[in-house]
Design a binder for these strands. Sequence first.
DNA 1: ACAAAAGTGTTCCATCTACACCCATGG
DNA 2: CCATGGGTGTAGATGGAACACTTTTGT
Lengths: 250, 250
Amino acid sequence: MTHQPSEHTGAPPGYDPRAFPPFAVTVDLAVLTVRAARLQVLLVRRGEDPHRGAWALPGGFVRPDESAGAAARRELAEETGLSDSTVRHLHLEQLRTYSEPDRDPRMRVVSVAYAALLPDLPEPRGGGDAAHARWTPREHAAPLAFDHERILADAHERVSAKLEYTCLATGFCPAEFTLGELRQVYETVWGVPLDPPNFRRKVLATPGFVEAVEGPPRRTGGRGKPAALYRAGPASVLHPPLLRPEGRRP
Amino acid sequence: MTHQPSEHTGAPPGYDPRAFPPFAVTVDLAVLTVRAARLQVLLVRRGEDPHRGAWALPGGFVRPDESAGAAARRELAEETGLSDSTVRHLHLEQLRTYSEPDRDPRMRVVSVAYAALLPDLPEPRGGGDAAHARWTPREHAAPLAFDHERILADAHERVSAKLEYTCLATGFCPAEFTLGELRQVYETVWGVPLDPPNFRRKVLATPGFVEAVEGPPRRTGGRGKPAALYRAGPASVLHPPLLRPEGRRP
DNA sequence: ACAAAAGTGTTCCATCTACACCCATGG
DNA sequence: CCATGGGTGTAGATGGAACACTTTTGT
């Protein structure tokens, strides 16, 4: 960052940055949620060429006076209709930057991709221009415009990995949740069933992961015994990690 | 990426991208190696303001016809004098993108940061303009220009984490190495001593991590019993992971 | 002979896995 | 009264930590 134009070899000495063919910088968002026991992603339908009519990840230009992270939050608020204060507090995970010169035939576009985790929400009531936004099950999110399938795959993999060693899973849950709901987040994102007793022990053994809600209020997901409610705790990393049951040795 | 200028809300309808205040896109490189049992980083001395005379990470502009990754490899070859084919094959890890609007007072610069791992090399014989490049112990790499200390910290943390569950450590080693040298990579990057017998077992138990070199040639790091030589194996991930001895419960 | 590093073996202990079992609720 | 999910208990397997011990070199 912040290199003198004449520093090193990227630009000839005395180079004027304004003469450079401009790079456009955009953000793309993989907004994920768990709805109806499925991992779902927020998609928008493109209204312009190229890929007019195709589904794509939401996103847009970074403005001259904002960081890429701020642009991602702004776009997220606009696409979902969530309040600014809600969007301001939720976790945005920068995935990586896609910069192949031929990604867009019309101009040079560099895009910073983010993943966002939301609890189950009503259908997006997009403010204004985002009425075309829709939750789509992750496995049906194809084909997508540009290389958005790749970005979505990267987002899924990153979130899956981060569930193992961070408290990120609570980001998919409402303010108060049962351990069964939390477990379903793991099962849905990873696509594997987990043993409820062991999951419970693991979560409660990790200090700061969840906190019991004081009052004895209980809630049920359908039928069965009512479950105790928990809140997200202050911890951000899991010690020890909660590993997905892959890599079993036969 | 690749958003239509009039798509969504990042730009007004009918917007012409060429009228946008241009973003410059650069790459910054945290080039790491293990020399003399220390983690060292390649630094260059800035020849221009701002931060003239300060040490900084190497880097430079992304050209209009290359991806950020290609720019990083080009800069790396120029700074180190390594051959193109060598640079083409080594592992470049994209860290993240830094895009705060005020990083550079002169213009808007978005930088994609990479980490690169090199085996111990002679002092950089920088081709041409990079004669001012120097290996510096990681703990002495301060102060640095701009937010390069932050980038270096991110690189160190990312590499430390990836050593746990990938075969990245062989990237710090020459083509043939002893298990003692491989262990020293871990100890140096993590800054903790490891138990040699347990380390040995762990590495050999991971299929594809290392391969024994056929001939019975042996080499010594100094004195002591000569050690068998190994090559990097075909695996890229470690199952199970080789965790650093942090997070012990007292 | 001694130091230093390679390499082998073994014991102890934390944790994970897998189930058996009881509890509370809705149909 | 039975299906369903919450919650507790426990025995066996697994794998890492710690450390004793032998081997092979340089000085």
